[in-house]
């Protein structure tokens, strides 16, 4: 669930943060999983056990063995290599989607907060609701029809979905700051609203935005898997967890592992990121942490 705007600004002091963080179980667990996935992805860029796109028909559907730790798929490709390279796809798509979402959404939210109560504020929030009303999947389908399916399509579709989320969070968190003393002080010293937004408001939103980005990262990974699963996202030969699930579907009765392994990869990654996000949120707001 997106933070609906009552998120307080983080106290972002690194040294205290680190010591508290290390004692927070879900933060530590989430960080560990995220690190493993990130390392696996990074490693796959330089090395995988086999070429994840190399097809070897005679060696298809091999069960796990010492040569192929996770077996091979219906074209004889090494499952472990595909999972490793698939992590790169997942991460890349979600990160770019967050880039799009935050890049467009945050300035919009900040502008709306800056113009609070005015027509611009109204218009921005209305457009926001408007985008929200279009199911992300429909956007993805339309994009595919217009530009052809592909990784970029998935990035844009998920990114568009992220825009209103970031706009709302930024708006919600920025609005109360405008009545705070330090903003008042800046105004009396003659700074314009845009300068105040950049110098005083934005730095105070970094924490909230990082928390939101973590949540959107995990949602993005789920969305990428779903889009690729129905053929709207990543295209062959690029490995993707969602596409692996798609191909595994007709082989469910024959080789269930082909569906189980990518599924577990998705769950582990998303779970890790969710724990990390929860951890970050707790750390940001100790009051909430005590309540949990």
């Amino acid at each position: 669930m997106s933070a609906a705007g009552n998120e307080p600004a983080l106290s972002w002091r690194p040294e205290r943060f680190a010591s508290r963080a290390l004692r927070h179980p879900s933060f530590v667990a989430g960080m560990a999983v995220a690190a493993v996935v990130a390392l696996m992805a990074a490693l796959s860029l330089v090395w995988t056990p086999y070429d994840p796109t190399a097809i070897d028909i005679p060696g298809k559907l091999r069960p796990p063995s010492l040569e192929h730790w996770l077996g091979t798929d219906q074209y004889g490709r090494d499952t472990l290599s595909m999972i490793m390279r698939g992590a790169v796809t997942s991460i890349a798509v979600s990160f770019v989607a967050i880039g799009i979402g935050a890049g467009v959404g945050v300035p919009l939210g900040l502008l709306a907060a800056q113009q609070r109560g005015g027509g611009v504020d109204q218009a921005i929030m209305r457009v926001n609701d408007f985008i929200f009303a279009f199911p992300a999947l429909l956007i993805a389908i339309l994009l595919r029809e217009l530009f052809g399916p592909g990784t970029l399509n998935a990035m844009i579709a998920i990114g568009v979905f992220n825009v209103p989320v970031f706009a709302r969070v930024a708006y919600g968190a920025a609005l109360p700051l405008w009545t705070r003393d330090f903003v008042m002080a800046a105004r009396t010293s003659g700074k314009g609203p845009t300068l105040i937004t950049v110098e005083h408001i934005l730095p105070n939103l970094v924490g909230v935005l990082i928390v939101q980005a973590t949540i959107q990262l995990s949602l993005g990974i789920l969305a990428e898997a779903a889009l690729s699963y129905i053929g709207l996202g990543v295209q062959p030969p690029n490995p993707s967890w969602g596409r692996m699930l798609n191909e595994a579907q007709t082989l469910m009765a024959l080789a269930p592992r082909l569906a189980l392994i990518p599924g577990f990869a998705i769950i582990a990654t998303v779970l890790g990121l969710n724990l990390l996000g929860d951890g970050l949120r707790d750390l940001a707001d100790p009051r909430l942490a005590r309540e949990r």
């Binding site: 190399a54 097809i55 074209y75 052809g148 399916p149 295209q235 062959p236 030969p237």
Partner: peptide, 15 residues
């Protein structure tokens, strides 16, 4: 596409 790669052709798959 993977077979063409062996003769040096990069076939880009467009579904």
């Amino acid at each position: 596409a993977s077979q063409l790669k062996k003769v040096g052709i990069e076939a880009e798959i467009v579904p």
